[in-house]
C-alpha cells in the first residue's frame, strides 16, 4: 500500500525537475531494504501520473543490493537476510552502505527542436 504514497513522491520529484517538458522515462534506484514491490510501484505510478507531464512515462527500476559497513573494523559485506551485526568483530555500530536508496536517478524528457538550428 505504501507504493501509492511512494509513487506520488516520485511523481512530485520528477515534475519539479521536468520544467514544462513531457517525461517519457523515469529511472529510479530502489534499495533492497526499502520493501518496495516494483510491480506495485509501476502500477500506482501509471495511475498517479495521469493528467501530468509524466502521463504514459515508463518507470524503470534499478534494484540496489543491500550492503553494510562495520564502523569498528571497516568490513563491508552484502546481506541477503536482515542481520545487522558485523560477522567478524560482532560490532553493533554498523552503517547501511547501500540498500536504502529511493532516488530518482534520471529522467528522459521531450524537448522541442533547438531554436538555434533555425
Amino acid at each position: 500500500m505504501h507504493e501509492l504514497s511512494l509513487s506520488g513522491a516520485v511523481l512530485n520529484t520528477v515534475v519539479k525537475h521536468a520544467g514544462d517538458r513531457r517525461v517519457s522515462l523515469v529511472s529510479l534506484r530502489v534499495g533492497r531494504l526499502r520493501q518496495v514491490v516494483p510491480d506495485t510501484l509501476e502500477f500506482y505510478f501509471e495511475f498517479v501520473a495521469r493528467g501530468t507531464l509524466c502521463e504514459g512515462a515508463r518507470l524503470e527500476l534499478e534494484v540496489v543490493e543491500a550492503s553494510l559497513r562495520c564502523e569498528e573494523c571497516e568490513l563491508e559485506w552484502e546481506i541477503e537476510i536482515p542481520a545487522f551485526r558485523c560477522p567478524t568483530c560482532g560490532g553493533a555500530e554498523v552503517a547501511v552502505a547501500t540498500g536504502n536508496e529511493f532516488e530518482v536517478e534520471s529522467i528522459e524528457v521531450e524537448e522541442a527542436a533547438c531554436i538555434a538550428q533555425k
Partner: peptide, 17 residues
C-alpha cells in the same frame, strides 16, 4: 522533437524529510 536525459539523483522522499 527529441529526447534528452536529465540526471537528477534526488531522494524521492526529500520533500517529506
Amino acid at each position: 522533437m527529441h529526447r534528452t536525459k536529465v540526471r537528477i539523483v534526488e531522494d524521492a522522499l526529500d520533500a517529506n524529510n
